[in-house]
Simulated scan of single mutants.
Amino acid sequence: MVNAQVDAMSRGAVRSSAARMRYWVSSHAVTDFYQGLVPASIPFFVLERDYSYLAASGLALAATLGSALPQPVLGVLADRWRLLWLAPAGLAVAGIGAGLAGLAPSYPLVWLLLLLSGLGIAAYHPAAGRDARRDAGGSAAAMSRFAAGGSVGFFLAPALATPVLVGLGVGGTVVFLPPAVLMAFVLWRYQLRRAQHAVAVKSAGGQDRWVPFLVLTALAVARSVVFLGLNTFLVLYWIDHLGAAPVLGGIALTAFLTGGVLGTLVGGRLADRIGKVNTVRFGCAAVIPALVALRFMPNPVWALLLVAVVGVTVNIPFAVLVALGQDYLPGRPGTAAGVTLGLAVSAGGLFVPLLGLLADRNGTQAVLTALCVLAVPAVVLALVLVAPVAADQAQPT
């Protein structure tokens, strides 16, 4: 009888946690949709307004600067004060900036609006990462759903935005403004309801462990280089090296990103079973043979299966790195989320132009070869990682 009551209470707690995580999964998907909307809309700015490629890259830079650099600072603020409004406000600002950019009459105003959108994305992630961990109750699987929500939003942006912008022109970005405002309102109401309940938060081991966190950050940058390099050059690799039609290159990118969403979810499940550090080591090691097999597969159709496997393996550590970073900095979950979700990913993007130079000189196959090599440091860093201090996690009420 007692065991049945305990099991019922446990199932109820799991259902309650899952219900709370829905808000974070959904809001993360909506927020990162606007991160994906920027690269999806840039070609339309070039076509309709005769922006140069340099000007187009400037728009991408504005969004990246806004979303990446402020995240650690905003994470510090989120750790010092509760700022329950920060995640909803960031979501709204992300959507308003990106939504109005297509209506802006001048390049400087477009640039500033995309910078503003990036700042909104930067405001959302540290606060959301902190509060999603609060509601996840220490579950890596729950945090993986949160991370996967962002991947889904980014993935859907070009699929939803392209037909709208083709039909309405670049000004059609305004169509995507209302979802941000609506989701921000829903999330704000949820935060207010949660604020009415007492939440007992215990320090996971007490001391912040900066050396393991710095190793983890370096690993996150290395993983980001591989992921963003593939995301940037896969289509060109299919067309230029494998001799496939552009549509097959697009399918390859879709397979890679779909595998990425699956890998993020698998990583969270694995972490709850074999531990976070072991999961990171497994994912980092598994990506190397998958990448090598892809590099030497001459058939573009068969390579589609391999690129999906690469997408799975390279993303297995993604959400786990976020949760592990918060384990290393138990007193600064917002800072940890800001670095692992924002700064480390964007720092990885700084290496992509170097891969572009390599592609210009030696072809896209050289990029795939380089990525096979660049995946090795992630394995070395994963072996150096230490297990987090076992402690009670925050138990949401």
Results as ranks from 00 to 15, higher is better:
369 T>P: 00
233 F>R: 12
222 A>N: 04
140 A>Q: 14
186 V>I: 04
363 G>A: 13
327 D>A: 14
169 G>F: 07
115 L>G: 02
105 P>N: 07
141 A>N: 04
387 A>P: 14
364 T>M: 02
264 T>A: 12
79 D>V: 04
260 G>Q: 07
389 V>H: 08
135 D>Q: 03
186 V>G: 01
165 L>I: 02
352 V>Y: 01
207 Q>Y: 07
95 G>Q: 05
342 G>P: 03
134 R>M: 15
202 K>H: 09
190 Y>R: 13
353 P>C: 11
270 L>R: 10
119 L>D: 01
290 A>C: 12
157 A>L: 13
180 A>F: 11
79 D>F: 03
375 A>F: 07
182 L>W: 13
253 L>Q: 08
294 L>R: 01
47 L>Q: 10
372 C>W: 06
300 P>L: 03
153 G>L: 12
372 C>Q: 14
118 G>D: 13
143 M>Y: 02
300 P>Q: 10
178 P>K: 10
360 D>A: 13
329 L>E: 03
393 Q>R: 11
188 W>T: 06
274 I>F: 08
242 L>M: 08
387 A>K: 15
236 L>C: 03
82 R>H: 06
343 L>M: 06
357 L>R: 13
321 L>Q: 06
344 A>V: 12
38 V>R: 00
240 D>K: 15
61 L>N: 05
167 G>R: 12
103 L>R: 10
246 P>E: 12
229 G>I: 15
217 T>Y: 00
344 A>N: 05
396 P>S: 08
383 L>A: 10
131 D>T: 02
295 R>F: 13
184 A>N: 14
382 A>T: 15
40 A>V: 10
83 L>I: 11
314 V>G: 05
265 L>M: 14
353 P>K: 13
29 A>S: 06
77 L>W: 06
79 D>C: 15
380 V>N: 04
299 N>H: 15
128 A>M: 09
347 A>R: 00
42 I>A: 08
354 L>D: 15
377 P>Y: 07
161 A>F: 02
223 R>M: 08
397 T>G: 02
191 Q>K: 07
324 L>I: 11
